[in-house]
Design a protein around this nucleic acid. Structure first.
Length: 365
DNA sequence: TCTGGGGTCCTAGGACCC
DNA sequence: TCTGGGGTCCTAGGACCC
């Protein structure tokens, strides 16, 4: 692998909360636990998207149920403010940030609403250009961003995560230093190691990335399967040959919904499927895509059992009625009549629609 | 009043073919 | 009466990420 590669990974700090604080500056110094989430009194199954420092200090984190967050704050004698998420607004800030970043590089990969990776070879491993870029973003957009620089995308991302805790919000990992940089970190810091894998590794007394790097490849493959075992072996050494990809290509487009209360009401379930089909079909058309397959997802309330069923369509489509009819047939066949907590509709086996072929058809014969 | 919504990737098992 | 082995495709479930 060419060792002249340099990547900059960029991650916005507390994106949703930060945007809300830019729109309503008094939020920045609010002494309450400010939580970006639907109010759980309105929708009891809401979860926390982002929280301010006051909330984080008492253990409120992203992904936590908002009802539990409210209870936690009460127990700490801290007042809570719920701010309803405004996703379109965050999208706007995201586009502004990506546009700014694109002026700094020839190749950028947007990895989520608040993350991007950049080709950074022109600056190498110097700290100064990173700090300048951070200052520029702060000045022009107002967002605080954390940066990681490394010769692999994997290590650059982990470095940007670590940078969040640093005063200058930047972390540069020199070439050849990746393994030493990773070794003391918890295995959980490795991208791809979640709660389940962390627990399995802990059972083998593998706690740090260094512990992981000491395990033989054969053992990892035996315990964790071929692909994941190999990944853990390479990643624990900071090895990663993935490269930047410019534009994303969708493999599936989906919509799902968790009911405020578990339901067995066929009318309610059908109406939800209908609106999800309209939503998904609209996004297919917006992307000039047709779906060759439709799938449903059901999660039962009491058991948390989740099932999925899929159906190959006779012809690829972006038509809401066709998607809804296919999904309804799958639900009729699969549903045990237990109360449903979540229902989802997914379109997959995507292919370009005729509209995007139109260019070819317009050529003279 | 535990556990959202939008995605990706991998695996195991069965069907089917030669 | 016994029953290989490889390849590929499909389905369903699960881990993980932001």
């Amino acid at each position: 692998m060419a060792d002249d590669r340099v990547f900059l990974h960029c991650d916005v700090d507390k994106m949703y909360f930060s945007v809300e604080a830019l729109e309503s500056p008094q939020l920045a110094s609010d002494t309450r636990a400010v939580i970006v989430s639907v109010d759980p009194r309105e929708y009891p199954r809401a979860v926390v998207t982002t929280a301010n420092g006051v909330a984080r200090d008492i253990g409120i984190n992203s992904g936590m149920s908002s009802a539990l967050a409210a209870r936690t704050a009460r127990e700490h004698g801290v007042e809570v403010l719920f701010v309803r998420p405004r996703h379109e607004l965050y999208g706007k800030y995201s586009r502004r940030l990506m546009d700014l970043l694109r002026t700094e590089t020839d190749l950028l990969e947007q990895r989520s609403i608040d993350e991007a990776a950049l080709d950074w070879r022109h600056h190498g491993f110097l700290l100064e250009p990173v700090l300048q870029l951070r200052a520029r973003i702060l000045e022009e957009i107002g967002l605080s961003v954390s940066f990681g620089v490394a010769s692999t995308l994997l290590v650059a991302k982990i470095a940007s995560e670590l940078a969040k805790g640093r005063e200058d919000h930047a972390c540069v990992v020199e070439p050849g230093q990746a393994a030493a940089f990773l070794a003391p970190l918890s295995v959980r810091a490795l991208i791809g190691v979640g709660p389940k894998s962390e627990a399995r590794l802990r059972a083998f007394e593998v706690l740090t990335i260094g512990d992981l790097a000491a395990r033989p490849l054969a053992w990892l493959v035996e315990q964790f399967g071929s692909a994941y075992g190999r990944y853990l072996f390479a990643a624990s050494r900071g090895e990663d040959d993935s490269t930047l990809v410019g534009e994303r290509v969708y493999k599936s487009i989906s919509a799902e919904h968790t009911f405020a209360r578990d339901t067995s009401d066929r009318g309610e379930i059908w109406r939800r499927l209908q609106s999800q089909a309209v939503d998904v079909a609209g996004r297919l058309r917006a992307e000039n895509l047709l779906a060759g397959e439709v799938a449903i997802k059901l999660r039962y309330g009491v058991t948390w059992v989740t099932i999925t069923r899929q159906l190959r369509l006779a012809a690829a489509t972006d038509d809401a009625e066709t998607l809804a009819a296919g999904a309804a047939a799958l639900v009729r066949k699969a549903w045990t009549r237990q109360p449903i907590r979540l229902i989802g509709l997914r379109a997959s086996k995507l292919e370009p629609s005729r509209q995007s072929d139109a260019v070819q058809l317009s050529f003279p014969r």
